[in-house]
């Protein structure tokens, strides 16, 4: 199963895509993904229910978050109400250590994203301050990466033995599915996604030039 693990809808401040339009785009363009995960900035969107859309288009649509830490941005998969109370998702000054610990405590998975990106990626912070214990996965393919940012992300993963995910980081409809993550088995819920990530059996894929 292939899921785009990083995308934004109009719920994110800089997102301009309606979720229904993502679905239409995936199907009408026959993109090689089975679904996508909405990782809205600095929030978890409990309100929206995409079950009907998912059924209508035969896609898996899951929800997660992108939070901001002292080591850059981090995707959080498997968000629960309890986790949402554990730290302030809207803060731009979260300690990565805290996000990792709380995610683990609540059965969620925290994945530093676009690590090769200046300031908002982990690589530069690791150079300055060293790695952070508890990181097991980083995003190695990001659809919005510039230049050598993805190369740096992969180098980081290789150096520290991190698993790597892929996601488009789409903010507009036509950018969905540029990068994704391939899982060996079906993933149908946020909990199953967190479990699959913990299992470590997945592979990042990129079609950046083909979307």
């Amino acid at each position: 199963m292939i899921l785009d693990l990083h995308s934004h809808s109009v719920r994110s401040d800089d997102g301009r895509a309606q979720v229904e339009n993502y679905c239409q785009w995936v199907r009408k363009r026959a993109l090689p993904i089975d679904g996508f995960v909405l990782t809205e900035h600095r929030q978890f969107d409990f309100e929206s229910d995409y079950a009907a859309l998912a059924r209508e288009h035969g896609l898996t649509i899951l929800k997660a978050s992108e939070v901001e830490t002292d080591y850059g941005h981090v995707l959080v998969f498997g968000v629960t109400p309890a986790l949402l109370s554990a730290f302030d998702f809207a803060s731009i000054r979260l300690p990565l250590v805290q996000v990792l610990e709380e995610a683990e405590r609540h059965g969620a998975v925290a994945v530093p994203c676009h690590p090769g990106r200046t300031r908002v990626g982990m690589c530069a912070h690791v150079v300055e301050r060293g790695p952070v214990a508890g990181v097991r996965i980083v995003e190695v393919y990001n659809g919005g990466s510039r230049g050598s940012e993805d190369d740096e992300a992969r180098a980081l993963a290789e150096r520290f033995g991190y698993h790597g995910t892929g996601g488009s980081d789409a903010h507009i409809v036509s950018h969905i599915g540029r990068c994704a993550t391939r899982f060996p088995a079906a993933v149908r819920s946020e909990a199953e996604l967190a479990e699959a990530l913990r299992a470590g059996e997945f592979e990042a894929v990129s079609w950046k030039s083909k979307s």
Partner: peptide
Amino acid sequence: AAGETRVLGT
């Protein structure tokens, strides 16, 4: 020229 998105929108 490097293919980097400078402006996006709808």
